[in-house]
């Protein structure tokens, strides 16, 4: 796999140097779509009650973002400027439908759980934002990497928020019951029941908690990287 990729690079300009690495790593930290650009908040609030949901959503967004960036970048010189937004929307909507149809065939229960939110990837501001800001003026390979980077940057925050919310709200992580008031929970059966007093904080299951968690994450991120504070 790795060898064939090296060959491709030489032939079609798929180089992977410092600039390309930056495209992948910047969105994870100093240019994170959620904590720095503050885009895509709506879905970050909605699908972060369970880690499994957040994970599927993250994969879906990485896929849609990477390929819509790639396609838009290939077409960027032929897309008529007057209708470029509509063209971008059609590309995004088509890819989202592909994701939806695939998920419905592969994992129906998760499809049911995410239901409307998969469709709402279309309105995720990160995707439109990256198409306008990057893919419309850069070459396909770099746009593709930018899409993957931003998708992962979004997904990481989504999963961090989901871990916090699922743990405090349900005492579980990715469906594995860890701590809670009944014997179903792992910590209660394997050690002793001294943790039986712990009862779940239902606030973390509700949407407002995601707002607090994301706010605190932004705070932590900016205290850690003070140079980000001036951006807004």
């Amino acid at each position: 796999m790795a060898e064939t990729k090296v060959l491709e690079k030489k032939e079609s300009g798929l180089s992977f140097g410092k600039a390309e690495r930056k495209l992948l790593t910047d969105p994870l930290d100093s240019n994170n779509p959620i904590t720095v650009q503050v885009l895509g908040i709506c879905s970050a609030l909605a699908v972060t009650t369970l880690v499994s949901k957040a994970f599927v959503m993250a994969i879906a967004v990485v896929f849609v973002l990477a390929f819509s960036n790639l396609i838009t970048s290939y077409l960027r010189n032929s897309i008529p400027k007057q209708v470029r937004m509509i063209v971008q929307l059609v590309i995004i909507a088509a890819l989202v439908t592909v994701v939806e149809l695939t998920l419905k065939a592969v994992n129906y229960p998760i499809f049911k759980e995410l239901s409307v939110f998969i469709g709402l990837i279309i309105t995720n501001c990160i995707i439109m934002g990256r198409l306008e800001a990057y893919a419309m003026s850069n070459r396909p390979w770099r746009s593709f990497l930018d899409g993957i980077g931003n998708g992962i940057g979004y997904g990481i925050i989504l999963i961090i928020v989901a871990v916090i919310r699922e743990f405090f709200g349900k005492g579980a992580l990715a469906g594995v019951k860890i701590i809670g008031p009944s014997a179903d929970y792992w910590l209660n059966t394997t050690t002793s029941s001294w943790l039986g007093w712990y009862s779940h904080n239902n606030l973390f299951v509700l949407f407002p908690s995601a707002m607090f968690v994301i706010g605190i994450l932004i705070w932590i991120h900016r205290s850690w990287r003070p140079n980000l504070v001036d951006i807004s």
Binding site: I79, Q82, V83
Partner: peptide, 17 residues
């Protein structure tokens, strides 16, 4: 050109989906 572009693209997307 715009109409042509949009028509072709929509048709392609529709067929694929």
């Amino acid at each position: 050109q715009i109409i042509k572009f949009v028509l072709i693209m929509t048709a392609l997307v529709a067929v694929v989906l």
